[in-house]
């Protein structure tokens, strides 16, 4: 059992892990990881059809965003 390796938290500072964490944070905040999330969902829910291609996924995502706008802030 290695409780500390979960979620990238390690006992000693490791510059590469820190960089990875930073990259994950930046991608997450920007929403760049949307396709990865979708693929992950596809994988773990065991859908039988093939997943959308990355290009098709982003097309649909932007189309959805156009249909369901959310406002930014003041």
């Amino acid at each position: 059992m290695s409780p500390l390796t979960a979620r990238g938290i390690r006992p000693t500072p490791d510059p590469r892990a820190a960089l990875r964490g930073l990259r994950r944070f930046a991608r997450g905040v920007l929403g760049s990881d949307a396709y990865d999330r979708y693929l992950h969902h596809h994988r773990i829910t065991g859908c039988s059809h093939a997943p959308l291609s990355e290009k098709e996924f982003w097309r649909r995502k932007y189309a959805d965003q156009g249909e369901n706008p959310s406002s930014g802030c003041c």
């Binding site: 997450g28 905040v29 929403g31 979708y38 959805d64 930014g72 802030c73």
Partner: peptide
């Protein structure tokens, strides 16, 4: 996997902050 996805709290914090902060 699209609109409803559990998101790491630290990432969500950044995401939420970026959404609320603006010119106001």
């Amino acid at each position: 996997g699209k609109d409803y996805v559990p998101t790491d709290r630290r990432i969500l914090f950044g995401h939420h902050f970026a959404a609320i902060a603006g010119a106001g």
